[in-house]
Simulated scan of single mutants.
Amino acid sequence: MTEISHRYVRVNGIRLHIAEAGSGPLVLLVHGFPECWYSWRHQLVALAEAGYRVVSPDQRGYARSDRPEGVEAYTIMHLVGDMMGLIDVLGEEKAVIVGHDWGCSVAWHAALLRPDRIRGVVGLSLPHLPRTASPMLPLMRKALGEGYYIVYFQKPGLADEELARDARTTFRRLLYASCGDNPEDVPMVVPYEGGLLDVCPEPEKLPSWLTEEDLDVFAAEFAESGFTGGLNWYRCMDRNWELTAPWQGAPISVPALYVVGDRDLTLSMVPKNMISERAVPLLRGKIVLPGCGHWTQLERPDEVNEALLGFLNTLA
């Protein structure tokens, strides 16, 4: 069995924790909210055994990595810059980058901003969404109200305290709420004077892909870090819109793959065609996993690994 090793590297003035395995062409696995390197444990081993050097960082603000002060330290430019710096520290020229959830935004933007460093890009859950004509937060407030979870996350300290109160409960309820095993669609709208976890059901039993030991690991990884760093990514959404103005209308110019579960709640937030071949002209596939929810690589590791290896094998 391939072992996963851990170490720290310095990138762009901060310390990042990375998990790594294998040798060969570099593949970066980039997590979303509220996750860490552990979300990629199945892919780290499978891709390494197939002949790849696989590295999964805790991104800035998360788990064992540094948590810079100030919301302004979490823009998409910082996040993409961290990935470019990581490629440098690892002694490589290029990498394939795979993202999930917020990690998709990092992956797609890495391919958009630095195609010279990215051999291919894979998005799990979130497609590449071209820059909108106006900032998204005012539109969300108008259409979905102050209770919509992304708007709720904007209030400093509020979600931070709620989610950190009992990290194990947070992970149990959040992971279950948005997975394909939950028979109910969860409206991600926080009730008045309530919190996000109030709309996330308590599972009668854990789904087969999530164990008590997994919850222990997630809770331990966030025991010191809390959730503020990850929430600050959401608080940079309008900043990101301003910063990416020079790339308005620019396509993703590297080979790409998109994988999503048909019960992923994010599908309600994206266009019906999910991903535009005009915006991603070198798209090599759209894979929809029946019965899969938001936590793609956790819920369906074998199918995700097969899709990733199939895509990787097409790259020169």
Rank of each mutant, 00 (worst) to 15 (best):
T75G: 14
R60W: 03
D66G: 00
P57E: 02
Y52H: 10
M84P: 05
A73E: 14
L79Y: 06
P57R: 01
L44K: 04
S56C: 14
S65P: 03
A48C: 11
G70F: 03
R53C: 05
Q59F: 06
M84K: 10
P68F: 00
I87Y: 12
R67Q: 15
A46Q: 01
H78G: 08
A50Y: 08
G51Q: 07
A50T: 06
L47K: 10
E69Y: 09
I87S: 10
D66Q: 03
I87H: 11
G61H: 02
V71A: 08
R64H: 15
I76A: 11
L44I: 11
A50H: 10
R60C: 02
G51R: 02
G51F: 04
A50M: 11
V80A: 05
E72S: 12
G61I: 04
I76M: 15
D58M: 09
Y62Q: 06
A63G: 09
A46V: 04
V55D: 00
Q43A: 12
D66M: 02
A48F: 07
E69M: 14
G70E: 06
Q43P: 13
P68Q: 00
G51I: 06
R53N: 04
P57L: 01
A50Q: 11
A73F: 05
L79K: 07
H78M: 10
V55K: 00
A63S: 14
A63E: 07
R60I: 03
G61R: 01
Q59E: 08
I87C: 13
Y74E: 12
Y52A: 05
P68Y: 00
R64P: 06
T75W: 11
V54T: 05
A48Y: 02
Y52G: 03
R60H: 06
S65T: 04
H78Y: 11
T75A: 10
M77A: 13
H78I: 08
S56A: 15
A48M: 09
I87V: 15
R64L: 15
A73R: 14
R53L: 08
L47W: 06
A48R: 05
A46Y: 00
L86W: 02
A46I: 00
L86P: 00
G70D: 05
T75N: 09
D82P: 13
E49D: 14
T75Q: 11
G81L: 00
L47T: 07
G61K: 04
A48W: 03
V45G: 09
E49P: 03
D58C: 12
